[in-house]
Design a binder for these strands. Structure first.
Length: 123
DNA sequence: ACAATGACATAAG
DNA sequence: GCTTATGCCATTG
């Protein structure tokens, strides 16, 4: 477990029920700057950290989806079906094409809240 | 230290 | 919208 991974967990732990966020948004919160061409750069690493969540942490990993509003889990422990079920438990509704509406469910934390979250980890 | 690998994000076709 | 190509970077072997 690395500092980066710990900070990812700290952010994910703060996502409230009924809201979702993207890998790129988490990366942006951690201060990783968007790249010139390929878009935000660290989201891939965020996914990598989420793929190795210790079971005893009890994180709401299912509230993180990709930028197009779709589920992109490929873990055998946390399958796409499980993720969808957990999200629906949160009250999140899917469109007919299996997507989630950002306008309705995007998590938008206040700056003060983010500062507090990040203050609990290194950086 | 180096190379390979992804639960990503964009731009282009 | 969907598919393909390209860039990124923290992790891992």
């Amino acid at each position: 477990m690395t500092p980066f991974t710990r900070s990812v967990y700290a952010v994910v732990a703060a996502i409230p029920s009924g809201r979702v966020t993207s890998y790129g948004a988490v990366a942006a919160i951690l201060g990783r700057r968007p790249a010139l061409r390929g878009g935000p750069s660290a989201p891939r690493a965020v996914g990598g950290s989420l793929s190795a969540i210790p079971d005893d942490l009890d994180l709401p990993w299912w509230r993180v989806i990709n930028s197009s509003g779709r589920i992109s889990t490929s873990s055998i422990h946390h399958t796409a079906q499980i993720q969808r079920a957990l999200l629906e438990d949160d009250g999140v509704q899917f469109t007919e094409t299996g997507r989630i509406d950002w306008d309705r469910y995007e998590w938008d934390p206040k700056d003060a809240e983010l500062e507090q979250i990040l203050g609990t980890v290194d950086a």
